[in-house]
Design a protein around this nucleic acid. Structure first.
Lengths: 156, 156
DNA sequence: AGGATTACTTTACATGGTTATATATTGGGT
DNA sequence: ACCCAATATATAACCATGTAAAGTAATCCT
């Protein structure tokens, strides 16, 4: 499998990645994701937490913006918002300028919850990071921006 | 939050990871995982593919072994196996020595499918890896073993 | 022999993703 | 001014895949 990219200078470089590495990457990231998505952090699921962070970043956000930012379909966002509104963590009102738009924001309780999550121990992850050597941990944090880039919804 | 590990020499080192990094790591890996799990690779879901690889590694495997190896509950494995057996990719028979055990193996069609997956382009992942510079790609592949370690079901 | 244990399956449920369809609002053309 | 198309969200129905709890069959132990 050949991956091509444009370099700084505008040249294009062909790179070869072994299929085996691709499969390992897919399987490993897939599994890690599953495990992390199942950690409920005492109450809120991954999907809801992720949405709350997105709301915080984009506040005040429309539902469609959130769907784009989260990389999921609008109905999925609608359902999650329903839940967050029920829980009193999120406020949803109609945009007075264009009443088709929903204006979404965190309630004070939602902001408080967001900060609680930020401070939380992230038990599973912490425990498992403890298996790593300092070098491994350093390397992992070093590629964090790369991982973020990999699933950035802004890019093509 | 403090993470502790034992070093080569048996010493213990306390390391501090910023909460923010923990949260970023969790959110990013969670999202990547979701995306990758949704790539169906023309027919088979992530869960089924992952299970087939596990079967291949452990062949002949019992259902319980597979559940442990996949880090999922036995009912989940049972259901996935039902599907794979339906598809003719996996054979399930009773262990003649202990008829409570299921003996699971890939059929020839299953092995063929496994190899097809190994050769497949992994479209989404390939395309997105193309965004990375050579250095980023190298770094990512470099931490692959670390990521694998992080979710290794063998370890505590 | 018979009860406890083991291994797997069945059942029932929750979450969160999808597509297709419905509803309400806005804006534009004549 | 009115109607139609487009837009933003919501609803409905479906699917996959995780769980926990209860059921079944086989084995083991005394």
């Amino acid at each position: 499998m050949t991956v091509t990219r444009s370099t700084n200078g505008g040249r294009r470089t062909a790179r070869r990645i072994r299929h085996e590495d691709l499969v390992r990457l897919r399987m490993t990231l897939g599994r890690l994701g599953r495990v992390l998505r199942q950690q409920t952090d005492d109450g809120l699921s991954y999907a809801l937490i992720s949405l709350m962070f997105a709301i915080h970043r984009m506040q005040p956000a429309s539902a469609g913006d959130l769907a784009t930012s989260e990389g999921v379909s609008p109905p999925s966002v609608t359902r999650s918002l329903n839940r967050l509104v029920e829980l009193g963590l999120v406020a949803r009102e109609a945009d007075p300028l264009d009443r088709r738009n929903a204006v979404i924001s965190l309630t004070p309780a939602g902001e408080q919850e967001r900060q609680r999550i930020l401070r939380s121990r992230e038990v599973w992850l912490s425990d498992h990071l403890a298996r790593l050597t300092d070098e491994q941990l350093h390397a992992l944090l070093g590629v964090l921006p790369v991982l973020e880039l990999l699933c950035d919804p802004e890019l093509p």
